[in-house]
């Protein structure tokens, strides 16, 4: 991935900046440029989402995505955030067998991957179980 492509999304990936519609007050993540509910009548403002949510579904990935081979097997989940939107995220710092639908997680800052030996290191969010 080019540095610019990664850099553009840093506010959302590091700090969970999404959008809030000034018209219908819906919160969205990732940020959108048009509110899907109000279209052009809604003005979107940046919104900092809270990092807590619940696991809606999960899978243990054995056949890793390209660039994620050394992390396999890893748990991928869909987490519904307390603010409304859902995200796809890995669940980190736990055994795969501990994870259940409905578990509460918080999103934490983690290293995601790297472009080869000397390439850019990518960061972003991963979920961590809250007991």
């Amino acid at each position: 991935m080019s540095v610019a492509r990664f850099w553009r999304e840093i506010p959302s990936r590091y700090n969970l900046i999404g959008s809030k519609c000034g018209n219908c007050n819906k919160i969205m993540f990732p940020p959108r440029f048009i509110c899907p509910y109000c279209r052009r009548t809604g003005k979107l403002e940046p919104y900092n989402l809270r990092k807590k949510g619940k696991i809606v579904s999960y899978t243990v990935v054995h056949a890793a995505a390209n660039g994620f081979e050394e992390q396999a097997p890893y748990t991928l989940a869909i987490v519904e955030l307390d603010d409304g939107p859902s995200v796809t995220t890995q669940i980190t710092d736990c055994n795969h067998s501990e994870i259940n639908i409905g578990d509460t997680v918080e999103l934490v800052f983690r290293r995601m991957g790297q472009d080869g030996e000397d390439g850019v290191i990518y960061y972003g969010y991963k979920g961590r179980l809250l007991k």
Partner: peptide, 21 residues
């Protein structure tokens, strides 16, 4: 690419999320 694959999603992975649910 930005919000699924960046996180490590694969195609079987996405359908597995549907299957589990």
């Amino acid at each position: 690419q930005e919000w699924e694959v960046y996180q490590g999603a694969t195609f079987p992975g996405l359908y597995a999320l549907m299957a589990r649910r």
